[in-house]
Write a protein that binds this DNA or RNA. Structure first.
Lengths: 225, 225
DNA sequence: TCAAAAGTGTTCAGGGTACACCCATGG
DNA sequence: CCATGGGTGTACCCTGAACACTTTTGA
């Protein structure tokens, strides 16, 4: 360990996870009720400190894994929040991450242990710290991603109906979509493939189930270059 | 000062600035040759540590101001780089910022004092740390911004020709643009206004000078809502 | 007079959007 | 038999891309 930098300050660095999931068709966040100071009693994003021996990305993955039991989750940085007074207790800089999970994969015991709950985005409670800002930014970047990458399928179960897919797009993009135009577009995407299964839970008639094929998606990507 | 977090590690937090400028028509970066360890002798982005009493954004603005003498520069976060071994000397987490400046505004004395130089993007020297990755990410986000916001004008002098503007777009987007189509598009943008001045330095015939009117831009924005 | 950059319109194709009705089934 | 969600095709418009020649003037 060298002394190049000894004149400078060391600061606490934390990560906070904005965890998106689709709960009964509603876009939701996994939030916990804080049981300790500061901001005890308020809802907040799940967070943790970055240790000396782990990268920031690793810290985020660790926090998410502790809470949900899932590894290898799709995460990306939303931004770093570094206002001097953002944490009333101490000077803490936080790197916010956004994560997309399929709710069925979540270990409900781990979630219960942390007193975490899925709360729909359009009915969020009051949140502590600068977490509302983080969520806003995460949502904005989610919208952008939706327009470019096939991230929707990370929120959906392996088999899904086109109505579920459309509803998800409508929620995230915040606007209605014409059913025929939507299906026309999906039909042109080879990586969304029809299966032989039918979902009978959503309607009397039953709806065909589709799956997302990542191999096909990546092949088509390569082809474009 | 409380003791909520005393069990956790404190880390050095730095900022690094990817400073874009247009030098003789070429998109360039302001880089310095490091005179001290670690990575002494290599070129690097201009950086500095975040102090306990300043926000991360403030630290970035301070570093940029020290080097260029400019305040109120357009900056935004590119991302946080937190690999454990990214700095060979110590554990340092760095938040990269991108800045767009008009080269004429730069205080050349301050720049010289820091042994900084404008180096064209397509002829970059070997850089230390993970700075190449930061530059790559900054460039990607610059391209995205160019497609959405009128950021080009932050790199150009107050008066510019359409050829200069087109050349800048071509450099940043990395592809040629048809002159007539480009001018047609610009003509539809009310915030780019023709002036009565003519630039005689670039051609025998002379080219009309244009300016960007931010008020008009913002009025049109409001109108769209 | 000529080199060098400035400036100027039209045509066409493809993608995006608007729009309304029949189908299958369980209760 | 009917309520409920599933599923399907067409016409039009508008944006984006391709494309080449004339103008001005300093040297």
């Amino acid at each position: 360990m060298s002394a190049y930098y000894t004149r400078n300050d060391r600061l606490y660095v934390a990560v906070d996870c904005v965890i998106f999931g689709l709960d009964h068709g509603r876009l939701s966040l996994l939030l916990t009720k804080r049981s300790f100071e500061p901001e005890a009693g308020k809802w907040s994003l799940m967070g943790g400190f970055v240790g000396r021996e782990e990268s920031v990305d690793e810290a985020a993955a660790r926090v998410l894994h502790d809470l949900t039991g899932i590894a290898d989750v799709y995460m990306h940085q939303v931004g770093t929040f570094g206002a001097v007074d953002r944490d009333p207790g101490e000077r803490v800089i936080s790197v916010a991450y956004s994560a997309l999970v399929n709710i069925a994969d979540v270990d409900s015991a781990a979630v219960a242990e942390h007193e975490a709950h899925w709360l729909p985005l359009d009915e969020l409670p009051e949140l502590g710290f600068d977490h509302p800002m983080m969520i806003e930014r995460a949502l904005a970047s989610l919208r952008r991603k939706f327009a470019v990458e096939p991230v929707a399928f990370r929120l959906l179960p392996p088999l899904f109906t086109l109505s579920q897919l459309q509803a998800l797009y409508e929620t995230v993009l915040g606007e209605g979509i014409d059913k025929r135009n939507f299906r026309k577009r999906v039909a042109e995407v080879e990586s969304v493939v029809a299966t032989d299964s039918i979902d009978k839970t959503g309607s009397r008639r039953g709806a065909r189930l589709y799956r997302f094929d990542n191999d096909i998606y990546e092949q088509n990507l390569r082809f474009k270059i």
